[in-house]
């Protein structure tokens, strides 16, 4: 069920959930399961970042790039479907391990897909950094200074694009991340362009990590036996989802039902930083700045308008926004 929290980072939520419950029960997933978790998580990161990149291109009106990116994204979706049996909800993680193996027969096909993706992503990085349309729309737009980013507790690529080296995978390693070498990509640009470059280079890092994990996967069991009774206990579990730090808190009270289960998704953590970025921007730049944090809007259905000159603040909720739209439509049929 934890998988259904999000349709894009479904694997991050299940990883976080299973880790929290494994912590509660005092068990640990076997090494092979940890490697499989890393492979799926990184494939998901590639899929999520390329989806985001397409959306960002669409927001600045560059639909050609959007179409090509999403065509190439099908490769990684097909790879995930091929490994797990579903395109979006992989259902790979289970408490105490993973449900399906990645046998060695699958490795060549995955590697072919990775080679293709690497070629394409390198091409897109070249295109993005040389294209004038993208440069004009994203450089120096949506500035978030490192000091503000830390102060407002931003997470994930948004924080790393402000030059802060912070990644849960490196700082608080879970699954097999402590055994796999990788770089934490940062950029000092602090603007939307930096966020694009950070995400593109993270995709290349992910490809290298999957290659390493496929080559160094230890043999062994896929899951351990899970004790049926739960002691009263509590656990905090953190995962680096494609959008940033994801945290689950679980507390059991000795019965089959949890006492408290709390999920904080990365988008909520980035909203205060987003407010800072939007201050003093052009209205036409709002979509790309908003898309710059890679938002998943599930719980934000309001909008605050602040006049920078007077400091006057007006909050429009969903209903009054609808009223306004209706009135505007009434005026110009």
């Amino acid at each position: 069920m934890a998988e259904r929290i999000c349709g894009i980072c479904s694997d991050a939520h299940t990883t976080c959930y299973t880790q929290a419950i494994e912590d509660l029960l005092g068990i640990e997933a076997p090494p092979r399961a940890k490697y499989i978790r890393v492979i799926i998580a990184e494939l998901e990161r590639i899929h999520s970042h390329s989806l985001w990149l397409g959306i960002a291109a669409h927001e600045i009106g560059f639909d050609t790039l959007f179409m090509y990116l999403w065509r190439d994204r099908e490769t990684v979706m097909d790879m995930l479907e091929f490994i797990s049996g579903n395109r979006v909800h992989y259902a790979m993680n289970t408490i105490g391990g993973v449900r399906r193996d990645i046998p060695s027969e699958m490795t060549p096909k995955i590697k072919d897909g990775l080679d293709f993706l690497e070629k394409r992503i390198k091409y897109y990085i070249k295109t993005i950094s040389s294209d004038r349309t993208i440069q004009k729309r994203t450089v120096d737009v949506g500035i978030l200074k490192p000091k503000d980013a830390i102060e407002l507790c931003a997470v994930g690529p948004t924080l790393r694009a402000s030059g802060v080296k912070n990644d849960v995978r490196r700082d608080d390693p879970y699954a097999a991340y402590d055994e796999i070498p990788f770089n934490v990509v940062t950029h000092d640009g602090c603007d939307v362009f930096a966020r694009i470059i950070v995400r593109c280079e993270e995709m290349l890092e992910s490809i290298n990590m999957i290659r390493y994990a496929l080559d160094h996967m230890p043999a062994g069991m896929l899951r351990v036996r899970v004790p049926m009774a739960v002691e009263p206990n509590e656990a905090v579990s953190r995962v680096e989802a494609p959008r940033g730090e994801l945290i689950h808190y679980a507390r059991s009270n000795g019965t089959a039902r949890p006492e408290r289960y709390k999920v904080r998704s990365p988008t909520l953590a980035n909203i205060p930083a987003l407010c800072k970025m939007l201050m003093g921007q052009h209205v036409a730049d709002i979509p790309i700045v908003l898309a710059g944090i890679d938002p998943c809007f599930a719980c934000m259905d309001r909008l605050a308008l602040i006049d920078v000159n007077t400091g006057r603040k007006k909050i429009l909720d969903f209903n009054s926004l609808r009223e306004n739209i209706r009135r505007m439509r009434g005026n110009c049929p």
Binding site: T64, Y68, R71, T127, S130, D131
Partner: peptide, 17 residues
């Protein structure tokens, strides 16, 4: 610029959908 070359190349390919 390079995206224009890519787009021209795609004209001669069959659709992916």
């Amino acid at each position: 610029m390079s995206i224009i070359l890519e787009a021209i190349r795609q004209i001669f390919k069959s659709p992916i959908t």
